[in-house]
Structures are given as C-alpha cells and as structure tokens.
Design a binder for these strands. Sequence first.
DNA 1: TATTGTTATACTCTATAACTATA
DNA 2: TATAGTTATAGAGTATAACAATA
Lengths: 141, 141
Amino acid sequence: MEPLAREVWGLISQLWLAERPRINDELAALGLHPMQALALRHLEQDRPEPMRALADTLRCDASNITGIADRLEAAGYVERRPSPEDRRVKTLVLTDSGARARAKLAEIWTTPPPPIAALAEDDLETVRDILQRALAASPRA
Amino acid sequence: MEPLAREVWGLISQLWLAERPRINDELAALGLHPMQALALRHLEQDRPEPMRALADTLRCDASNITGIADRLEAAGYVERRPSPEDRRVKTLVLTDSGARARAKLAEIWTTPPPPIAALAEDDLETVRDILQRALAASPRA
DNA sequence: TATTGTTATACTCTATAACTATA
DNA sequence: TATAGTTATAGAGTATAACAATA
C-alpha cells in the first residue's frame, strides 16, 4: 500500500470529519436527514430513477428506500411514478421543489471549511487540477 | 465567496461521499456504528474524557452519549470512570481492546479510494504539502 | 423461479424534556 | 441556581425476513 496516498487520504478524512457536524446541522435546518439528502443528490430532473437503483447507489437495503421515499414524497420533493416498461418498478422523479432543495444541498456540500477557504489562489488551482485529473482517470468515483 | 475554494471542496466532498458506503461497510464489519467509531476516534489512551466533552466534540445531545457509551462499554472498548475532581462527571477511558479497535479505525479512514490511490508520487506530495499547510494554519480543524 | 417494492421487527442514532446528584 | 449524566419518548436510518405483484 502506498503510504503517501494513505497520508493524503487521511488528511482529507480529517478535514471531512471535522466538517460533518456543520453539514449535518445545515441539512437539519433544511429539514433533511443525511440519507434523504444523499437520495436527493442522486436524482436529476427529468430522469426517473428506479427505487432499486437508488438502493444500489446508496448501498442500503431496498426496504429502507421505501421509508426514505415516503418522507421525501411527504415533503413534496419527489413523486413515485410507475415504470412504463416493468410494472414491478416504481421510479422516483424530482419535483420543482425537490430540484430547488437539491441546489441548496450542492451549496452545503461545496462550502469549504476554514483550512481550505484560507488557501492561496495558486494552491487551490494546484489541488483542483490534481483532483480533477484523479476523478477523470478513475471511473466510478 | 471564493469560487475556487468551493470548487476544491466540492471535489473533496464528491470523493468522500463516494467512499461513504465502503467506510460504513468496514465499520459494520468491525461491529461499530458510525457514531461509536467517531467517539472512539476522539478518545486517547490514558486520557479520560468527560462524557460532556465528547458530546460537545461530536456535536450531539448529551443524552445520546449515554447510549453510545453503554454500547462501547458492552463491547469492552471503553470504561466509565468517575472524575476525582467533580463527582457529577463521568469520564470515558479506552481499554486496550478499545485502543486496538481505534487503530483499525485509523486504517479504515486512511485507506484511499481508487482516484487517490492511482495518483503519481509527485502529485500526492504536492497535495499532501498543501493540505498539511492548510491544517497547520487553521486552528480547530 | 427471480425480482421489485412493501411490511414487520429489532436495533441504533437523534433531539427534547424531565429527573438525580452534585456543584 | 446551574451543570453532568440518566431515563423516557418519538422520529429516522439500518438490516433481515416474509409477502404480493410481476417478470
């Protein structure tokens, strides 16, 4: 195992875990629990998503999606819509209100913590370029 | 708001959120729920931690710490010990078994995802240096 | 037979409120 | 009075198992 990569990821973990309380607070202020927020994050407008696919993406049992979808539907953020191709499948679609909530989530997840916000412009550019390259090179991230 | 810093943090969020399922799976394999793992993370050997301080660190209500400490104690990872200075206070101390579990947690949180593991040596050094500088410059992170 | 979504169950995390024992 | 830890309660996330409808 590459010790340098481990060191870098350790620093990233440290930064993220320190931000976790702030992020959860802001999600709660929006009336969303973490898993509801992650579900919303993986939905896109005009792209109905089978509940089963969402369970795979979030890596949780299908039975949990029922409750998460119930609450997102009660909040008016998603709608259940039967699939025209397979009558067993129900898809979730973002409402306009859901799309607005999703945009606020993106704000929350991109708000940098003090150590990142304080970095100089050229350091930020350097890190951005490397991380973008890393994400472009590796599939499924 | 600095858009570059937001972009960088967005990339870091993307990387972390993609790793979340793997991390939760490995915590579960250790028999630990996320909050139990975070509690363990903030304990150090031979440094009794008041339960109240842990609640502040984890940013959750004090009543939750009771249950979390109950389960960590049942697992043999921590012990409750009354404070000699203030008889209202109970502190948590890591057992040897708890310290071993904590070391495994560090392994989990430092295991890099494919995009980071695949980076070249000099890119890793660059990112490490910048993040280390960022963390050293900002207090409380 | 296999899969999708649901329900039932049991456990953990979450905040709020009320309690106790200390300070 | 104020604070530390506990208990009770209710809502949400978690996996497992069983079920109905559909493939």
